[in-house]
Design a protein around this nucleic acid. Structure first.
Lengths: 259, 259
DNA sequence: GAAAATCGTTGCGTATTGCGGAATGAGAGT
DNA sequence: ACTCTCATTCCGCAATACGCAACGATTTTC
C-alpha cells in the first residue's frame, strides 16, 4: 500500500494490514520485535495493533510470545470460496437446463426467512420470467423456500408462521399454518415443490434443493415460467440437475451419519 | 467483539472487523447504506473505513456500488491452509521414518537464503540430533538447501554465492563456487543430497525435496544423525518418503508443462 | 420530463483516539 | 546474582478518525 493516493487513508488499517503481511511472510510464528522491525512500527504501537487483531481473531498469539495468522481469516475466506464454488458448479447445469427447456433457471440461497436470487440463466425469448439478482422473496411463496421450511420440520414451519404471519402475495399464497405445513412436508417427500402463482399471478415455478458435503441444503435451483407454459415433465430435469450439482458439491445421499 | 475487556482496544480495527463480518453475512454484495446500518456506523465513517479496506484489498467494490469480501483474505488464508496441509501430510511419514531408522527427521522450508526448521520427529534415544523449530541454516551447508540451490540452476547458485560469500561453518563446508555448483547439480541429478559435517562437525544429514501440485519444491525432508551412525542405505527410505509426501500434495512427476 | 427523495461522497472543525517515549516487569543469558 | 533484552503498561500530546453538514449523482415519484 502506497502513500501516493490523494484520498484520505486510515493509518491504523494500513498498519494492521502491514502486520498481517509481515506475519504471512514467515513460515513459523514470529516474535513482536521482528514484527515491529519489519513493519517499521514502534514496538508499543505494534503491540497494541496486534492485540486488537488478536481480539478480533485475525491473529493468534502462542504462550511463547509468537504471533501467527488467525482463524477469522479462514472463516471469511471460506465464505468467498463457498460462494465461488457454488456458482461455478451450478452455472453449467443451469445454462444447459435453460437451453433445453427454454425458461428462466434460478439459483437461490436462504437468508433467514427469505430466499435470495443469487444467479440466473435467462432464455433468449421476449417473454420470460426475470428475477433481479440480489432480490429476495419470502420462503412461503417460493418452491425452494417451501422445501427449505419443510426440511426444518413442523416446528420450524410454525415458528416461521408466527414470525411472519404468512402474508398473502396472491390469492394462491398459503396463509394458513396447517395447509402450509402439509404443502411443505409433502414437497420434501416428493423431492420438489411447485409455486402455483403463489408469489405472483401468472408465474409458476418448479424448485428443488441443492445439498453439499455436509448433507444439508445450501441452495435452491428453480425454473420460473409463465404459468401456462410450465410443464410437469420438467420436474425430472430439475431433480436430475439438482442431484448432479449436489454430488459435485460433495453430497452423498443415504450416507450413514459418521461426521 | 464486546467492550467488557479492560485493555485498550483500537476502535477502528473493531469497526473494520465488524464491517467485514456484516459483508460476510450477506450472500450477495451489499450497498453502503445497509452496511452502515448493520454495523451501527455513520455512513461517512463506514464509507471511509470501507475504502481503506478496499485500498488494502480486504474488500472489493463493484461499479453498482456494492461491496464484497476481497482477495487479500483468500491470500492470507491460503497461507494458513498450505502450512496446515504440509504438516498434516508430512508428519505421518516423518514419524514412520523416525521409528524405522531411529534418527531425527526434519521438515524444512526455504526462506530466502536459508532453510527454516519447520517441524521434526525426534527419536527416543539419549543421543540424537536436535534442531530447534524455527531456527535457520544457510542453504549451502544443508542437504536440502543444496538441492534447492541446484534446482535453481548455476546462475542462482552464483547469485547466492555472491550474496553470502559462502561462509565456512566447518572445514567441510563448500566455500568455493565451482565445487559448490558441482555438488548442488550432482545432488539434484541423483535426487538426494548429503551434508557431510558441513554445518556442524559430528553431524551428517541426508536430504530430499518435497514438491507440490505446482511441481515446484516447497519443502525439504531430511534425516540428521551423528556422522558415525549415518548409513547410505537410508537414502532410498528418504527418497520414497519424499515422493509419497509429494504425491499427496499433488505432485505429478514427468508431467508435460501445461499449467 | 420535472421535481423530490435518497444515497454516496467530500470538506471541515473538533475531540477523541492512537501514538511514541519512558518506565517497569519478566525472562533469558552470562 | 547481575546484566541485558524483550514485552508490557502508563501518560501526555497531537494527529488522526469522526460526525455533521453540504453537495453531487442517481433513483424514484408524480
Amino acid at each position: 500500500m502506497s502513500d501516493e493516493k490523494p484520498e484520505a487513508r486510515i493509518q491504523v488499517i494500513d498498519r494492521a494490514a502491514t502486520l498481517l503481511d509481515v506475519i504471512s511472510r514467515y513460515s513459523t510464528p514470529v516474535k513482536l520485535k521482528v514484527l515491529s522491525a519489519d513493519a517499521g512500527l514502534h514496538p508499543s504501537t505494534a503491540y497494541r495493533i496486534l492485540h486488537s487483531l488478536i481480539d478480533n481473531r485475525f491473529v493468534e498469539r502462542s504462550g511463547d510470545g509468537t504471533y501467527r495468522l488467525g482463524q477469522r481469516l479462514l472463516q471469511l475466506s471460506n465464505r468467498i470460496h463457498s460462494d465461488i464454488e457454488l456458482r461455478a458448479v451450478a452455472m453449467p447445469y443451469m445454462t444447459k437446463l435453460r437451453d433445453q427447456l427454454g425458461e428462466t433457471i434460478n439459483l437461490t440461497i436462504r437468508e433467514g426467512d427469505a430466499v435470495v436470487y443469487y444467479d440466473k440463466a435467462t432464455p433468449n425469448r421476449m417473454m420470460h420470467v426475470n428475477q433481479i439478482i440480489g432480490s429476495r422473496a419470502p420462503l412461503h411463496v417460493t418452491g425452494v423456500g417451501k422445501l427449505m421450511l419443510g426440511k426444518g420440520g413442523e416446528k420450524e414451519i410454525e415458528s416461521y408462521a408466527q414470525r411472519t404471519n404468512l402474508p398473502a402475495y396472491t390469492r394462491n399464497t398459503f396463509t394458513s399454518l396447517p395447509t402450509l405445513t402439509n404443502e411443505c412436508l409433502a414437497s420434501v417427500e416428493r423431492g420438489y415443490a411447485l409455486d402455483n402463482e403463489e408469489a405472483e399471478i401468472g408465474v409458476g415455478c418448479i424448485g428443488v434443493l441443492i445439498y453439499d458435503h455436509t448433507n444439508q441444503p445450501v441452495a435452491g435451483l428453480s425454473l420460473s415460467a409463465p404459468i401456462e407454459r410450465r410443464r410437469g415433465e420438467w420436474v425430472e430435469d430439475l431433480k436430475l440437475a439438482g442431484e448432479a450439482i449436489s454430488e459435485q458439491l460433495g453430497y452423498r445421499p443415504l450416507q450413514s451419519v459418521e461426521e
